[in-house]
Amino acid sequence: MEKKKIHPSVEAFKTFVKGNPKIIQEVRSGKATWQELYEDWYLLGEEDARWDNFRDSKTSTDQPTDADNSNKTMSMSSVMDSLKNMDQNQLQGYIANLSQALGTIQGVISQLAPGSAASTNATKNSGQKQPTGPFSFRKD
């Protein structure tokens, strides 16, 4: 399968983000989205005051190294490439089968759980009174 070519501005933004790892933390914390940051970068440029908070004035020792970041980026990109190369219909079938299996397991658990609606309905429908203790002795 042929790889899609990425627009040069997107490549430049990726390079900018790699140079400023605090941007990644901003997205992961949920304070901003990639789309918002890309639009700001595209419209305002790299030298705008908006990016001053994300620039590293000095390197901190508790932040991951560039090698760690590149490994994480490579693993995420390999996962995304794998997902892109999968047959969507086959993936949908797997998800449907998994959903059915989980539904079946849920049904079995609900029947076995004490006090659940399914187990009380089964007791009511059986018509026989269940013994209250562990032994089924009868009085004469």
Rank of each mutant, 00 (worst) to 15 (best):
G19Y: 00
G19M: 02
N20A: 02
N20S: 03
P21R: 01
K22P: 00
I23T: 00
I24T: 04
I24G: 01
I24Y: 10
E26V: 00
E26L: 04
R28Y: 10
S29Y: 02
G30S: 01
G30M: 00
G30A: 01
K31A: 07
A32Q: 05
W34E: 07
W34H: 01
Q35M: 02
Q35L: 05
E36L: 08
E36A: 07
L37H: 03
Y38P: 04
Y38R: 00
E39S: 08
E39T: 13
D40L: 04
D40N: 11
W41F: 10
W41S: 03
W41L: 03
Y42S: 15
Y42T: 06
L44H: 07
G45S: 05
G45R: 01
G45I: 04
E46F: 04
D48Q: 08
D48S: 15
A49E: 15
A49K: 15
R50V: 04
R50E: 01
W51Q: 05
W51N: 02
N53L: 09
D56F: 11
K58R: 10
S60Q: 12
Q63I: 04
Q63F: 13
T65S: 15
D66Y: 07
D68R: 08
N69V: 15
N71K: 15
K72P: 05
K72C: 11
M74T: 12
M74D: 13
S75Q: 10
M76W: 14
S77K: 07
S78W: 05
S78C: 06
V79K: 08
M80E: 14
M80A: 13
M80G: 03
D81G: 09
S82V: 01
L83C: 06
L83W: 09
L83M: 04
N85L: 04
M86D: 06
Q88A: 14
Q88Y: 00
N89I: 07
Q90H: 03
Q90I: 12
Q90A: 04
L91G: 07
Q92R: 06
G93P: 00
Y94P: 01
I95M: 11
I95P: 02
I95H: 06
A96G: 06
A96L: 08
N97R: 09
N97H: 10
L98F: 09
S99D: 04
S99V: 06
Q100D: 10
Q100S: 10
Q100F: 06
A101P: 00
L102W: 13
G103Q: 12
T104I: 05
Q106L: 12
Q106N: 14
G107A: 07
G107K: 12
I109V: 15
S110Y: 07
L112G: 15
L112K: 14
A113Q: 15
A113D: 13
P114E: 14
G115I: 09
G115P: 06
A118R: 09
T120A: 08
T120F: 10
T120S: 12
N121R: 08
N121I: 14
A122C: 09
A122W: 09
A122Y: 14
A122R: 08
T123M: 15
S126G: 01
G127L: 09
G127T: 03
Q128M: 13
Q130M: 04
Q130Y: 03
Q130W: 08
P131M: 03
T132W: 07
P134K: 13
P134Q: 10
P134A: 10
S136L: 02
